[in-house]
């Protein structure tokens, strides 16, 4: 028996909106730790890892570890029917072939339940090693989204370079080139407007902008994004999910032949 009650149901809507274009089908894993997902896109270039810790739910009952195979675009369709302020409860029996999403309006005057068929998904779980990063950039998530969107009108790839000068996002295309440099800046009115660059070593990596733009669908979840870089490793683009967890997107770099 699984029963997870999330008061901030809107968070789950935002989570699904940030996943559904990247991954078609995925297993949600429920354990005492929390509600999690790990999945790659169909070309295995990007991987997403979601964790919503059990403490973040108002009620979290998970009698035994359960893996729920779901089509993410169908799940997003169902969650779209919930109000942004609704309380969302996810329910499933141990041997269930369906999952129930229950939506309650904040003043309890409207209660809806949506039942969605589950699916069997063969997914391979990858071990993500703990890495020491050469550079970690924290910046406003909207700024990062803007940069990815702007650069993708000019080129297909972005070179992200971190030096003492700051973090530089560069692209080139048929019409020309573009460079955007963001400097370390903590003298801001609000902490979420800060750009914080921690650099152990200079690092420069090339990535496909198409995937970066897909990751920025998570922008409504968090004011800040964390970009962690190391030579010859996938970049990690992380958005916090309130105080209860995170979405981490991993993107494999383009490598010189």
């Amino acid at each position: 028996m699984l029963e997870l009650r999330l008061v901030q149901g809107g968070l789950l809507k935002k989570v699904l909106d940030s996943l559904k274009d990247l991954v078609n089908d995925a297993n949600f894993d429920c354990s005492a730790t929390g509600f999690s997902l790990q999945a790659m896109d169909s070309s295995h270039v990007a991987l997403v890892a979601l964790l919503l810790r059990s403490e973040g739910f108002e009620h979290y009952r998970c009698d035994r570890n359960l893996s729920l195979g779901m089509n993410l675009s169908n799940m997003a369709k169902m969650l779209k029917c919930a109000g942004n302020d609704d309380i969302v409860t996810i329910k499933a029996d141990d041997a269930a072939d369906s999952v129930t999403f229950m939506f309650e309006s904040p003043n309890q005057d409207k209660i809806a339940d949506f039942d969605m068929k589950l699916m069997d998904i063969d997914s391979e779980h990858l071990g993500i090693p703990e890495a020491e990063f050469q550079a970690i950039v924290r910046m406003p998530s909207a700024e990062f989204a803007r940069i990815c969107k702007d650069l993708s009108t000019i080129g297909d790839t972005v070179v992200i370079s971190v030096t003492k000068e700051g973090v530089k996002f560069s692209t080139r295309g048929d019409i020309g080139t573009a460079n955007i440099v963001c400097r370390h800046n903590t003298s801001v009115d609000k902490p979420e407007e800060a750009t914080i660059i921690e650099m152990e070593e200079t690092v420069s990596l090339t990535f496909a902008l198409r995937y970066m733009n897909s990751f920025t669908k998570a922008t409504p979840l968090a004011n800040q994004v964390t970009i962690s870089l190391s030579s010859d490793l996938p970049v990690v683009v992380e958005y916090k999910v309130a105080e209860m967890g995170h979405i981490r997107f991993y993107l494999a770099p383009k490598i010189e032949e």
């Binding site: 295995h44 990858l126 490598i255």
Partner: peptide, 14 residues
Amino acid sequence: GSKQSTITRFFSKV
């Protein structure tokens, strides 16, 4: 030119 690598090049199955 550069070639797109895949996640499975870096992370292995568990």
